[in-house]
Amino acid sequence: MSTYAAGLSADIGIALLGGLSVYVILATGQLSLGNAAFMAVGAYLASALTVYAGLPLTAALMLAGLASGFLGVLVGFPALRLRGIYLAMATLGFGEMTRSFFLDFAPAGGAGGFRGMGPVSTAYIWAWSASLLVGVVLLERSRLWLEFRAVNDDERAADLIGLNTTAIKVGAFGLGAAIAGVAGGLFAYHQLYIEPGMFGFDRSIEMVLYVVLGGSTVAVGPLLGATLLVLLPEFLRFLADWRLAAFGALLILVLLFRRQGIIDRGMFRGLSRRKWATP
């Protein structure tokens, strides 16, 4: 594999994790527009733990995931009070707050950024991405996932049949944030340099797009979305300066004509022995 292809493949692996982090939270009906913040926390923490404290990268990534997950739980509790667009706006605010926190946080380099991370192999990145993807696919086959979806479909009814909707919604936030934290750590090592501007609103939106374009009802949706969105700029290279405009137009077309995303659960119904309830 050429360096170029390896770089793109690593980008896809990291994007997939970003998409999964949104996917898990969205499965409970909560839209987060602030997941780049969890990624930032993971990125800075994993970098600091390895560069300052000399921890091995794998251990640092696990700790970064745990810490981001914990932050996700902390964000998940106030998020219980909000729904729909109001939750989206609050998470957007949280994302911007985190970004400006790192901008001002001198030990992490402030606006100058943070460096000192060594390069990692694409295989190492994909080892993480693939295991977490498998983890989410297994989660989808569990009873817990049915509870996630029950909360998404009708929270009040889920509450009435005795599901602990608080734990489910907060837990989903924690899990999504943990995945984003790992994604951030890998991102830092892949880029070799991080600065707060990398974790702004654009990044959070990108993560949502992987899910919405690829398909928000199956875990392979984010995989497809991440692959397409990472490769798309390469395909659109011939448009030169008008690349982004073409991307915007494509995005509108997909939303208009395939609003459930490119892949949906129905496509898998024939393939799987398990019978899904029709949504």
């Binding site: 667009i85 949502v208 797009l209 300066d241 982004l244 915007g248 995005l251 939303l255």
Partner: peptide
């Protein structure tokens, strides 16, 4: 208009797509 009855995430992203186009222009 075409997404008025879709979940709110859809108009959010389709209007965002327009902002990407406008900025590029």
């Amino acid at each position: 208009r075409p997404l008025r009855d879709a979940p709110m995430i859809m108009p959010l992203l389709s209007t965002l797509a327009f902002s990407i186009i406008f900025q590029n222009v």
